[in-house]
């Protein structure tokens, strides 16, 4: 564990709490992509199958359980509790275009051709692109509530902090995880446009609005 990874994980936790706070206080999941949230459930379920056979640490165990549980809970809130506040006509990204290629990539690029490893690789590739339906939705509506942008910013910070973590690990432990690194860099890159608007508008007290 190093500071970058710890702060990254904390940013990830923060993003989930921000999202829960947004849904509970506005009693609405307006502006949140159900598809992206569903993809995160799939990401956690496929990545953490090692819960059953690979012990890392108590920290790792508790976080995994939390990510699985909280993502399922968010899905429940969106699907049942606040269902009428979700507008499927805005959430139109075709996730088949993400699932198919990620699965094929996982079959080709994995560390071992066995079920748990292919699922792990699949989850890494899928996480990298799972934000697409959310960003697509943002693009369609052209604006977002401030709290939704804070959620996305925390998610982006989490991904960004994993990059110095890998650099640090390379120099201190000599380990490189090429699958995680390449997918992680792609994933972080997807937030660049968003970050630009977030820093130049939302953090200056303006509304999050995309240029027409």
């Amino acid at each position: 564990m190093n500071l970058f990874r710890l702060l990254g994980d904390l940013a990830h936790l923060a993003s989930i709490f921000i999202l829960l706070h947004k849904i509970q206080t506005t009693r609405s999941c307006r502006g949140i992509s159900f598809k992206t949230q569903a993809l995160y459930v799939l990401v956690f379920l496929t990545r953490y199958v090692d819960l059953f056979f690979h012990w890392v640490s108590l920290y790792n165990f508790v976080m995994k359980i939390f990510f699985i549980a909280s993502s399922c809970y968010i899905l429940y809130l969106m699907k049942y509790r606040f269902r009428p506040t979700h507008d499927p006509s805005l959430d139109t990204f075709k996730i088949e275009y993400l699932l198919g290629p990620c699965f094929v990539l996982a079959l080709i690029f994995n560390y071992h051709f066995e079920l748990a490893e292919v699922l792990w690789a699949f989850s890494i590739y899928l996480e990298a692109v799972a934000i697409f339906p959310q960003l697509f939705m943002l693009q369609r509506t052209g604006e977002a509530e401030a709290i939704t942008t804070h959620y996305l910013a925390a998610l982006g910070v989490y991904r960004a902090l994993y990059i110095p973590n890998w650099i640090y690990r390379y120099f201190t432990e000599g380990v490189v995880d090429p699958i995680a690194v390449v997918a992680g860099i792609v994933q972080t890159g997807l937030y660049l446009d968003f970050f630009y608007v977030y820093f130049t508008k939302v953090l200056q007290g303006q509304k999050f609005e995309l240029p027409a």
């Binding site: 790792n60 071992h112 792990w120 973590n165």
Partner: peptide, 10 residues
């Protein structure tokens, strides 16, 4: 197994 050793990140 070596590869699972590296899966210590979340």
């Amino acid at each position: 197994k070596d590869s699972s050793r590296s899966h210590d990140e979340l």
